[in-house]
Design a protein around this nucleic acid. Structure first.
Lengths: 123, 123, 123, 123
DNA sequence: GTGGTCTAGACCACA
DNA sequence: GTGGTCTAGACCACA
């Protein structure tokens, strides 16, 4: 489910956070579903448990998971977190549009990219 | 011309690289124009010359500037580098479109953002 | 494994880059093998860690090693890098052949040198 | 006759030395022929006269030119210098052959390169 | 004056 | 422990 790219320049715990955020936002991991235990994931990825713990703590702080001590961690996915994340994404996209315009990229080129992803008559 | 944001989490030398890349790509700095000297920029930004040097080396490796030892550094801006950079930008944008679709963002929302930057009837 | 020649006119960091490139291309250092840590190599060669760091950064940029921050650096050796390096070498040799011809060196003299290295009936 | 590549990473005076050595060794500049005056070359190349002077001094030290004060510099080309230079070149070539063998380049590949320069039945 | 290299030494994030 | 960044400061070659 989760894999780590050692060649990736980002720190491991950040990659883990990112992977789980994506899985939760894509609804692959549903609300209240149990997260893999810190230990099992550490073994599976051949990574120090401290690193996994650090990632889980961050995910909890951000509101993506909740922990019941003695039972484990579970997917939280409150609606507010999802909206925040989507807004953040829109902002990033808008900034890149500004950059693109500055560099002389034409509007039609971007529309072209957009149509590759959202097919022609899709919403 | 150049300023450093100490609150920015990125390292100083990376901010400098980024600033100059943008200035060169936006054609604010024209081909063969002299770059500020390492020392003068270091004084102006109140930063150690080694840090500036590191940024300039990276800019030279990437093909944005060329250096004549004993004379200074100058804007290179070969066409290939510009095209590469623009392609890279388009790729990033496409990946974000995929992410947006995955998260359930609708096409019209993105078009909306696009029209904020490239006004309605602009190319 | 690695040694520095202080009489060599090339800067220290360049010598280090060169030594490791050779070890990797000769397959003395195999893929994914750990590189000596920056600090340990600095102690061993009695050289400042910054200088080693500079060499390792260059090796990473060139694709010879990859770095996991907090864990260390490892031999990358992707096939493309090897091929590039070999091509570069062939080009250098060809240019020297041109120079030799210009200077009036005869073909048999070069063949003679070649046979000293690749023994008579070797491939 | 002479041109400088500002993008070349080698110092200017070294490029000048190299260019003249080549011209003399190729017999383009014949013995006792006058060298361009320091001033005229400085103007022509838009370079500081000190830099030209430094190159001429080096060429004189190496035995490629001789100077008659008040009259100018002239091509020397003594036979010994030529032989030294050719030997140096052969050594460089031999070292590259060793490197090539180490990297797994086959003998026939090098012979192939050689035949590109010295046509098939040439001496 | 200009860039290039190097040292000594510090502090930080990450594993 | 490991790499990454940065400072202060020195010395050198080159123009």
């Amino acid at each position: 489910m989760i894999s780590i790219d050692l060649r990736d320049r980002r720190p491991i715990y950040e990659q883990i956070i990112d992977k789980f955020e994506t899985l939760i936002l894509k609804d692959v991991l549903k609300e209240n579903e149990p997260m893999p235990s810190v230990r099992s994931l550490a073994v599976q990825l051949a990574i120090n448990p401290n690193t996994i713990q650090k990632a889980y703590n961050a995910l909890e702080n951000k509101g993506f998971i909740y922990t019941i001590s003695g039972k484990g961690s579970f997917v939280a996915k409150n609606e507010q977190v999802v909206l925040e994340k989507i807004n953040e994404l829109k902002n990033t996209i808008r900034q890149l549009f500004v950059k693109a315009k500055d560099y002389g990229v034409e509007k039609k080129d971007i529309l072209n990219e957009l149509d590759k992803i959202y097919k022609k008559n899709e919403r």
